[in-house]
Structures are given as C-alpha cells and as structure tokens.
C-alpha cells in the first residue's frame, strides 16, 4: 500500500527522519510511537504527500509521490483518510457537511441526505449532532467526526495522528474500537501515538505492529510494549 524506500527527510538543515525503508501492507495495523518531536507527524505527512522525502522515495499504490503533480496528489489523498489531533474542520459548516466534505470536493452529488452518511454518523454515534457546528462538539465527538470524515470516501488507508490526545480514556477506547472495526474491514491503519496504554489495549484485540521512531530511524518495537 505505502512503501518507504531509503527515505530521509530534512528540515532546517537537520535530518528529522533518516534512511527509512518499510512497507505498510494492505489490511495491516500499525502503531507509530516515539517521544514528542521524534517525527511521528512528519512520517504521516510523508505518507499522504503533505511533505516530501529529501532523498529516497515514498510510494502509494506503487506511485512515487514526489513525481506526481498537485492534482494527482489530491486524488491520492482521497484514498487516504487522515485524522488529525486538532481535527481540522470547517467551523462554519454543520457536522454532516463536514463529514461529507471529501465527497463534495471530489464532485459527488449532495451527500447530506444520503443513507451512507446517516449510517456513518450513526456508526460513530453522532446522528443527533448532524446539524451542530464543530465548535459546539466535545473533544471526543470531534475525534469521532474526524474519523467519520476520514472514512467517507472508503479509503484504503487511515492515518491517525494522536487521535486520543485530547480525549478521556473511555472515549479513547470507543475511538480505538472504531479503528479496529475498520481494520477488520480490510483497511490499513496507522496510528501515531505516545499513549502506551492505548497500544497495549489494542494489541489485545488486533494483530498490531508497533513502530518506534528512535534516533531519526523507524524500528520495530520489541516486547517491552
């Protein structure tokens, strides 16, 4: 699905990530961990083309991102759902329009009244908040809404950057369950987090691999987690 081939990413004269070679295969579940500033967000951004490798190559579906034009990058992003810690909603639009946004920008017909959208909002437990504006939602609701938006286009890959960073444990578990369900549907999941309890809980439910960023390199974490 996503391949890193000797990828190095530099910023401001220093290397943030160095010589990374790995493959995120279809249907896999990965945690990406490491201390703050280790490069977790950078790694995710390299996956969906918000950043580009300084050397080496990142390929999505076999296509090297750096060789693609801006429109092609936009199309690639429709196959990758991204959940950010701060969610990035359009605050002036109601929640249902925010969740349907990937379909809207892709030129699909109005999804606001579609059964798919209703099912999706019901799945993340936000049916009653359809017409609420994002600032009116709690942290947990916003994260679930962000997840719903990420899966709206039925992407192959879901990247989540500290999705449980701003929510309580109960809500974190609920979000994790949703991600595990998606993985069981065949989606590739990558979650960047420094929450080791979340990783331990997830490993009890799903065959997750844990990648750790240490000294600018990505390593497979051992039994210490």
């Amino acid at each position: 699905m996503i391949e890193f081939d000797k990828v190095t990413h530099s910023y401001g004269g220093g290397e943030l990530l160095s010589d990374i070679t790995l493959r995120l295969t279809k249907g896999s579940f990965h945690f990406l961990t490491g201390p703050s500033g280790a490069g977790k967000t950078t790694f995710l951004k390299l996956c969906y083309g918000e950043l580009f490798a300084s050397s080496g190559s990142v390929r999505v579906g076999g296509m090297p991102l750096r060789d693609l034009d801006r429109d092609s990058i936009a199309r690639i992003r429709r196959t990758i759902g991204v959940v950010h810690q701060d969610c990035q909603f359009l605050d002036h639009l109601p929640l249902d329009e925010n969740i349907a946004l990937p379909m809207t920008v892709a030129g699909f017909e109005d999804m606001r009244h579609s059964d798919d959208l209703k099912d999706l909002m019901s799945w993340v437990g936000l049916s009653k908040q359809a017409s609420a504006l994002p600032p009116q939602l709690s942290g947990g609701e916003r994260q679930r809404a962000a997840l719903a938006r990420a899966v709206m286009m039925d992407p192959d890959v879901i990247l989540a950057d500290e999705p449980t960073g701003n929510i309580d444990w109960e809500m974190s578990m609920r979000l994790l369950q949703l991600l595990v369900e998606l993985n069981r549907m065949g989606k590739t999941i990558v979650i960047a987090t420094h929450d080791l309890n979340l990783i331990r809980t997830a490993k009890a439910q799903v065959a997750a691999r844990v990648l750790r960023i240490k000294d600018r390199r990505v390593q497979l974490a051992g039994a210490d987690l």
Partner: peptide
C-alpha cells in the same frame, strides 16, 4: 479552510 480542503483531496482549481 484551504489546508482542510487540501487534506480531504480538493484540487487547486476546486
């Protein structure tokens, strides 16, 4: 708004 639109796959022309 622009960053969010780019994130969800909006093309520049859109």
């Amino acid at each position: 708004v622009i960053r969010t639109l780019r994130l969800v796959g909006a093309r520049d022309l859109y």
